[in-house]
Design a protein around this nucleic acid. Sequence first.
DNA 1: ATTATTTTTAATCAATTGATTAAAATATTT
DNA 2: AAATATTTTAATCAATTGATTAAAAATAAT
Lengths: 229, 229
Amino acid sequence: MVKSKNTLYICFVESYLRKIVKRKEEKELSTTTEEKIKIAARLVFHKKGYSATRTRDIAEEAGINLALLNYYFRSKEKLFDIIMFETIFDFMQNMARVLNDEKSSLEKKVELIASNYIDLITKEPNIPIFMLSEIRNNAEGLLEKLPLKQSLMNSAFFKQHQKAVADGKIIEPNPLHFLMNLLGLTIFPFIGKPLLQGIRGLNDKQFNNMMQERKKLIPVWIKAMMKAK
Amino acid sequence: MVKSKNTLYICFVESYLRKIVKRKEEKELSTTTEEKIKIAARLVFHKKGYSATRTRDIAEEAGINLALLNYYFRSKEKLFDIIMFETIFDFMQNMARVLNDEKSSLEKKVELIASNYIDLITKEPNIPIFMLSEIRNNAEGLLEKLPLKQSLMNSAFFKQHQKAVADGKIIEPNPLHFLMNLLGLTIFPFIGKPLLQGIRGLNDKQFNNMMQERKKLIPVWIKAMMKAK
DNA sequence: ATTATTTTTAATCAATTGATTAAAATATTT
DNA sequence: AAATATTTTAATCAATTGATTAAAAATAAT
C-alpha cells in the first residue's frame, strides 16, 4: 500500500506529536527508566557517599537491571558527577538567589537563608555531609566550574554588609565571619545531630521542633551578635 | 556491614586506658610496627573514610607489608573500630573535661571550648567530617557505649545554664540551642571551608588566621546572643 | 650454639564490583 | 506485516580488594 504525500505528512506530524505527548505523560505520571535511576542514585549516593555505594545498590533501589545504569550513564562516576553537580547547584542556587537580591534587606536575607535551608535540609538531611565530604574528597575543582561563584562574589549581600559596617551597625568587618556564623547556626545542627542525640536523649520529632524554633531565633541571634564587641 | 558489637567498646575503654599508662611508663622512643600501622590507619581513615580506604593504602602509608595489618589487627574493620573509638573518645573527652568543671564559669567554658577545638581541629582538620559522617553511616550505637554520655548529661554546664536562665541572664531556656550554637560557630567553619573558599578566594593561611580570630570573637558573640530576644 | 618463638614476606585465594556483550523483548517506522 | 530501532535482560569478564598461608627472616629462650 502506497501512501499519498498527504497521508505521509500527516503520519509524520502524528508521530511527532505522539512523542511529545508521550514525553509529557512520562514526566507527569510515570517516570522514565533514566529518571528512576537518577532518583535512586541521588538517594543512595546522598546516604552512603560515592565509595560506599555499589552500582548494584542503585539498580536495586531503582528496580532496574544493573546493565541499564551503564546503558544510560556509561559509568558510576559519570552518574555520580551528575548527581553531585545537581545537588551542589540546587544548594548554592538557593543561597545565590537570596544573597543577590538587591531589594531585600540584610536582615531579610538572614531570615530567608535560615528558613530556606532549615526546610531544605529537613527534607533531605543527608545533603550537608554528602556535599561537604564529597567536595573534600574528589571534586575540588567542581566548585570552580559552578557559574554561581562570580555572582556571589559581588553580591548585594557583601555590599550591604560593607555598608552596615561603615554605618557602625555591624562591628566585625569581615563578611566571611558573618556568613560562617549564619551557615554554622543553620546547618551545623543537622550535621551534629547524632552527637547531640548522643549527649542528650533527643528523638527526631524533638529535633525537628528545635530546628523550626531556630528559624525565628537565628535572625535574632545574628542581629545581637553583629552589634556585640 | 555490621561494625558494632556491644561488648567491644567497654573492652576498648579498658585497654585504651591501660595502654596509655603503659606507654607513659615505658617512654618508648621508637615506634613499634603495631603503632606504625595505627598512625597510618588514623591518617588514611580520617582523610578518606572507611569505605574509600584500602588496606593497601594503610600498609603503604605505614611502610609495612600488607599481611602485617591482618597479623596485628585481624581485619580492616577491627582496626577501623579502634581508630574510630580513639578519635571520638579524645574529641568528647575534651568537651567533657570542660563542661564538667564545677569551678569554671559558663563564660569560661565557652572560651575554653572554642579555643580548645579550634586548636585541635586546626591540627587535624579531617576529624569533624570523619567523625560525623562515619557515625551516621555505621556506629549509631557507638555513642551510646561511650562512658562520657552520663557525665555530660548532668554536667556543671547544664546546671549553670539552668541557673543563668532562672536568673534572667540567658533568654533561651533550651541548653541544646546553646550547645548547638557554640559548636556550630566553632566547628562548622572547618567543615564548610571548601564551600567558603569556593565563594571567595581564601587561602589556608587566611583561613587559619580567621579561626584564630574566632577564639576571641565566639565568646563575645555567644554572650550577646544569649541576652537577645 | 641450638631450638623455639615471634615477626615479616611473597604468593595466592575468594569474594566483590564496575563494566561489557550478545541475545531477547519491546516499541517504532515503513 | 515486515523491517528497523530501542530498551531490557542474563551471563560473564577483568580488575580490585580483604584476607590467608606457608615459608623465610629475625628475635628470644634454652
